[in-house]
């Protein structure tokens, strides 16, 4: 192992403290008994219990989950097919460059622009159909739109890693297209598809901007709820809610890490 300069060690610890200090603050005040203000009044878990009595929060949690699950499923299917279509066919270089640019738009353009363009587009589509009133369907469409790109990029890199030889071997061993897809390609792609889906799911949970622009009054999500609550004046419940969301994030991250590390080994 390399000897490390004390300055590097010091900066690293300070940086980590800088990342975690505010989060720790939220967690500490989530178990503070004080109803108002930031003075320590003793330990309590009652704010957590109260969360489950708050219909607003429960509904927001349900919306968040619904939004993430539906958009992830659709985006994973569309993104996977798109990745296969882009990587496994003899497109002219101009065509594939064009497809590549489209796919990278959500990565190189600030999400607020995507949000703004969706607001305007939905506003015009509203003349055609009431589906495009602000609300959950709009949010799902918005989320899918940026998720597809990320799923497709992840799955495509997996396709590239698999390479052509396994497919050639399968055909050399008399596999028809359908048999090859079912018995070789899908099982081999599965880690990439799951990784893509996990990424899409977390991106959806993490999103604020797209939801903020496309949400209606009936479709609060947890991030929107917290954002609104900060302006109304924060209650300890918000601290409890935030801490809970952080815990869920930690669990998701650890699970994802386990999953990818397990598959890297194979």
């Amino acid at each position: 192992m390399r000897r490390q300069h004390p300055l590097i060690v010091a900066i690293s610890y300070l940086t980590m403290a800088f990342l975690y200090l505010p989060l720790a603050g939220v967690a500490i005040f989530s178990v503070n008994a004080a109803r108002r203000g930031l003075v320590w009044k003793g330990f309590t878990l009652k704010w957590y219990l109260k969360l489950f009595e708050n219909d607003w929060i429960l509904e927001a949690a349900w919306n968040t989950l619904l939004l993430a699950v539906i958009s992830t499923i659709i985006a994973t299917v569309l993104g996977t097919i798109l990745a296969i279509a882009m990587d496994r066919f003899p497109w002219r270089s101009r065509t594939s460059n064009f497809l590549d640019i489209i796919l990278h738009i959500p990565v190189v353009i600030p999400d607020i622009i995507l949000a703004a363009s969706l607001v305007v587009a939905f506003g015009l589509l509203r003349m055609a159909s009431s589906i495009f009133e602000p609300g959950l369907p709009n949010m799902i469409i918005g989320h899918i739109t940026f998720q597809i790109a990320f799923v497709a990029l992840v799955v495509r890199s997996r396709l590239v890693a698999i390479g052509s030889e396994v497919e050639e071997a399968a055909r050399d061993l008399f596999a028809t297209n359908w048999y090859l897809l079912r018995k070789v390609m899908l099982p081999l792609l599965m880690p990439g598809i799951i990784a893509g889906a996990m990424l899409a799911f977390t991106l959806s949970l993490d999103d604020f901007v797209i939801s903020f622009f496309t949400a209606g009054p009936e479709s609060q999500t947890l991030p929107l709820f917290i954002f609104a609550a900060v302006r109304r004046g924060v209650t300890p419940q918000i601290h409890a809610l935030s801490t809970l969301i952080m815990l869920v994030t930690v669990i998701l991250v650890v699970l994802t890490e386990r999953f990818t590390r397990h598959h890297e080994k194979e």
């Binding site: 279509a85 066919f89 003899p90 489209i102 796919l103 995507l114 703004a116 305007v120 739109t145 497709a152």
Partner: peptide
């Protein structure tokens, strides 16, 4: 034949991105 099959596979995802990414961008 390959390009025919490829276009078929390309269309759902690309159609979506055209409809909800590129087109709204142009509208903007």
């Amino acid at each position: 034949q390959l390009l025919k099959r490829g276009s078929l596979l390309l269309s759902p995802g690309m159609l979506w991105l055209m409809l909800f990414l590129v087109l709204p961008g142009l509208v903007l």
